[in-house]
């Protein structure tokens, strides 16, 4: 897709978003749009402000200043309505481990008031090949299965915006590849908009239609992987990353 196309509509508008913790600026007046149906990669070294940005999009961290608009509505004033249309999966966040896979989906289906919940749970279990795991306690799942459960929770609500924070971290290459395929298939089927973070540069190149490069809380580059690579005069995204991380 071409994000610059005049037909492209912004789903999310981030305007002058800033977050300061005890005098330290984690996110520094960043503005960007997430266009409907795109996969936007959020890239940057540790401490660049990626996770803080995602947390502000999910309203679990309040911005020091700036706004997040979703479908033109301010997250601050339309929290409930907007969060029903957003979901997330993260390798850093567990799911209630004393509940079975199916019970977890039941709870989150109710929390997000998913229509035809039972049917949707069955669909998601099938889509993620988790039908045989439905009665397993979350604590007994492998890392790959837990990632799939986290994705199932996110897919269940058919969100307009899906935030994926390092979904393949700590997965072996085979499972990571299957996870990427699942995300891609889901995005194609439902034309879902995705914000994606990863420390795997190949993955970012493969997954993202467009990338925002953050460093020290500021946006240092925006564009396709090729555009960013060209801008920094490097061979690939990994070299760009190393250049930015080491030289600022």
């Amino acid at each position: 897709m071409s994000p610059q196309s005049p037909n492209t509509k912004s789903l999310v508008e981030v305007r002058e978003l800033t977050k300061t913790f005890n005098g330290l600026t984690a996110v520094d007046h960043i503005s960007f749009d997430i266009y409907e149906g795109e996969i936007l990669g959020l890239l940057g070294p540790n401490g660049a402000g990626k996770t803080t940005t995602i947390h502000m999009l999910l309203d679990i961290v309040s911005p020091s200043s700036g706004n997040v608009l979703f479908g033109g509505k301010n997250l601050r004033h339309h929290r409930e309505e907007i969060l029903r249309q957003i979901n997330f999966a993260s390798s850093h966040i567990a799911m209630p481990f004393s509940l079975t896979v199916e019970e977890n989906l039941e709870i989150f289906g109710r929390l997000y008031e998913v229509p035809h919940r039972k049917t949707r749970i069955e669909q998601v279990l099938e889509e993620l090949e988790m039908t045989s795991l439905r009665s397993k306690l979350a604590r007994t799942l492998s890392s790959g299965q837990m990632t799939r459960l986290s994705l199932a929770k996110a897919f269940l609500t058919q969100p307009r915006l899906l935030l994926l924070d390092e979904p393949t971290a700590s997965l072996d290459p085979d499972i990571a590849d299957k996870t990427r395929t699942l995300v891609r298939e889901y995005q194609r089927r439902f034309a879902c908009t995705i914000l994606y973070t990863s420390h795997n540069m190949k993955e970012m190149e493969h997954m993202s239609d467009r990338i925002i490069f953050l460093n020290r809380g500021k946006i240092v580059a925006t564009g396709t992987a090729q555009e960013i690579t060209a801008k920094f005069g490097q061979r690939d995204l990994e070299d760009v990353f190393l250049t930015v991380a080491r030289n600022g």
């Binding site: 999910l58 679990i60 969060l83 966040i93 567990a94 008031e113």
Partner: peptide, 14 residues
């Protein structure tokens, strides 16, 4: 204990 706070408070739950 189940590290579930973010799942809950990033949902529409008030």
């Amino acid at each position: 204990w189940s590290r579930n706070l973010m799942n809950l408070f990033a949902s529409p739950l008030k």
